[in-house]
Design a binder for these strands. Structure first.
Lengths: 242, 242
DNA sequence: TATTACTTGTCAAAATCGTAAAATTTCATG
DNA sequence: CATGAAATTTTACGATTTTGACAAGTAATA
């Protein structure tokens, strides 16, 4: 794992228009008036990270909200033994860092770039002010947290009740929903994460991932083309393993 | 499992003062002015359920917020095979039902009374109005959801990385935090849930609960007095199994 | 109080899953 | 394109956990 890339963080003032355009498309900010938005954009900072770099470290306290401009990150909790659980994978327009802002506690998870990633950072105080001033942002945020709780609950159910095959199927279906594309009636997942990452999402070992994925391929549920995973019949697969 | 008890739900107008007193002590309403509070109390409804009755059923849509006046409930997700996962156990002053209100989706979990329970119910529209009118409520709610997300994430980590003993220890520690009391420097859990419920929380079988708890007792970490579980050295136990 | 329904402790058999290690493939980089 | 590093596949094995069962204990109730 690399150290954080020390991008100095250029202010966005150089290109306000572009930044506005971006931020307006971020769901939790979509309700904000242009004037408010401009304030935010002016105090925000743009940061770049290369693949593998640690963006935030567990146990840290300094709080800020980050919105993903481009790239993908994983939210990770780590064991004393160094084993990790991936709580979620976030992509463009998703945000993170809100939990420490809201309750003031130390981060309970680290954030790692899994591709080259560009972020938009808003300091705690600015974000809190926004929450105060624009009630719609609070409501958006409530909706987003609710969605995350639903996902977490589904994950707990899966981990509690399903065997390894079921949990892996779940992770694949989750990825399909999050980053899958539909082509010729089939769902494709480009850039399938590493087996080790899949294992860390499904709460199993890398070996089991290998075994189970090939079992699915033998049963014609899945197809693997290089780094692309194809679900032949999404609905059928879902109904069989959910 | 019994059918829902059909308590007709008496308005609280009969005893406004008492209801105010109660609602004022509920954390998410603590910031509200007395006048606002009175409105809420007037539109709220009190409901009673007996042990074992189903308060809310998964897949239902009708949305309302419930605050627990007295008793305990479990939030449960159920398998097609009827196996269940307990997502959390809530007690006095806790609330539930907010997720469907916020995102409008059907409930993803059922709620079952595990003791005789009395609830205070606020209809969706009244709660949404409250959110609009009193920003502090939104912030309280955001904090509470954040806390629940942290708990859920910890649960996911535990289920993913720990063996059965570790997961059981985790559930016991969680119960200690939620409903434990400190006596003579030790943490006591009165009314330990049934082994089957513990199993449904730890994602394991009842037999394993029995085996592991007795292993902990042999190692002098725990003591069992009837239905009361005592953690002899909370910190040590935590450090050994967390 | 007697009876019935739950709840718990424990066992043996069977299944599941993780660990380890070696062989092979894929990928990144000079 | 070659080469070393990283990632994956495969195999075998053993440890953990689940299943299903039953007896003993406890609580609930008629």
């Amino acid at each position: 794992m690399n150290l954080p890339s020390v991008a100095p963080g250029q202010p966005l003032t150089s290109d306000l228009g572009e930044a506005m355009e971006f931020i307006r498309n971020v769901p939790i900010f979509s309700e904000i008036e242009a004037s408010e938005l401009a304030k935010i954009v002016r105090v925000g900072v743009r940061k770049k990270y290369k693949k593998g770099s640690i963006i935030l470290l567990e146990e840290e306290t300094g709080a800020a909200l980050f919105v993903i401009i481009s790239g993908k990150v994983k939210i990770v909790r780590t064991d004393d033994d160094g084993r990790e659980v991936i709580l979620s994978i976030l992509g463009e327009n998703d945000f993170f860092g809100e939990m420490s802002i809201l309750d003031g506690l130390a981060r309970s998870a680290s954030v790692v770039a899994i591709t080259k990633t560009e972020l938009f950072m808003i300091h705690r105080r600015d974000f809190l002010k926004l929450l105060q001033d624009v009630p719609a942002v609070a409501v958006s945020l409530l909706k987003e947290l609710t969605m995350r709780l639903r996902k977490a609950d589904a994950q707990i159910k899966s981990l509690s009740l399903k065997d390894a095959a079921g949990r892996v199927a779940n992770v694949i279906l989750q990825l399909a929903d999050d980053i899958g594309t539909i082509r010729k009636g089939r769902v494709e997942i480009d850039e399938l994460p590493l087996q080790q990452d899949l294992a860390n999402m499904a709460g199993t070992s890398r070996e089991t991932i290998s075994r189970v994925v090939h079992m699915f391929i033998k049963k014609n549920h899945l197809e693997l083309q290089g780094n692309k995973l194809i679900i032949n019949d999404y609905e059928k697969f879902k109904s069989l393993y959910t």
